[in-house]
Design a protein around this nucleic acid. Sequence first.
DNA 1: CTAAATGCAAACTCTTTGCAGGTAC
DNA 2: GTACCTGCAAAGAGTTTGCATTTAG
Lengths: 153, 153
Amino acid sequence: MSCEQGLFKSLRRRGLRLTAQRRQILSALHEIGQLATAEEIFRCVRKDAPSMDISTVYRTLELLREFRVVTCVQGNDGHHRYELAHHSAPHVHMVCRACGKVFEVGLESLQPFIACARERYGFEVDVHALSVEGLCHACCARPRVETIISHRK
Amino acid sequence: MSCEQGLFKSLRRRGLRLTAQRRQILSALHEIGQLATAEEIFRCVRKDAPSMDISTVYRTLELLREFRVVTCVQGNDGHHRYELAHHSAPHVHMVCRACGKVFEVGLESLQPFIACARERYGFEVDVHALSVEGLCHACCARPRVETIISHRK
DNA sequence: CTAAATGCAAACTCTTTGCAGGTAC
DNA sequence: GTACCTGCAAAGAGTTTGCATTTAG
């Protein structure tokens, strides 16, 4: 897997090692193929490596983030969610605050905003960590008070 | 303060009360005038009301959010940040991932994206909880490896 | 071999909850 | 007077850290 090769080289360059656990976590990220919390990744890894500890998952995700192998965004519940950086082109995650479902869309329609931020403030939007909340089609169609009032948890 | 009047009525309608603590927290939100974490609000309130407990701050913020008096977004560090809802028109918060500074910009440049989300997925973006990460002008100008590699904490 | 990484357990931080006493109305 | 609210303390959830042991290279 070329992804592993690249990581191996990067790690070696800093005297770090490609361990079985790191490979397993990488493979779980491939298997999941979309945004996932540390907990979800942990559960996925555990299927094949029941002895792995969650602290290893946290440490590895932090490492992978430093090496730009994964990107990280805030979910609607305040937890970090990770996905492989090369998995796709930069995109926005739209998270439904009622059901938690995630939709993706490219950056095209966001260019005016990105340009505006740059021109007005010199602010460089991080296009790899874009996430917005809202209500998905299904949850809009079922506007129960509950969904509207308490949009947390 | 008209803001207090309105809240009082809303509370009464549900048999709830406008206590000294709730007024103090409201006043702290006015004083701060921008996004703040529960902890920051707590510190601000404590200046005048040293006996207030942080659990009261959490409970009150949750209440104010239910009553749409405050809005709540995720900061770059995963903490909720609150601000008065009427404080300004809907806007995007741009949070620098290096120094934490917050910039604001109106929704105009974001309309194409909002429209795109709606047309393509029927997704209604929550315009009161928009927040993006990136690098501010000052931090872009000082591209230390540190700022780029470890953009957390 | 030897520094780096892991698993375990314990610590930490932020947030929530249960409860007895206090308070708005 | 009576629910509602508060402060306190303790519990939870998610994440991080210290340390002895294991392991990649």
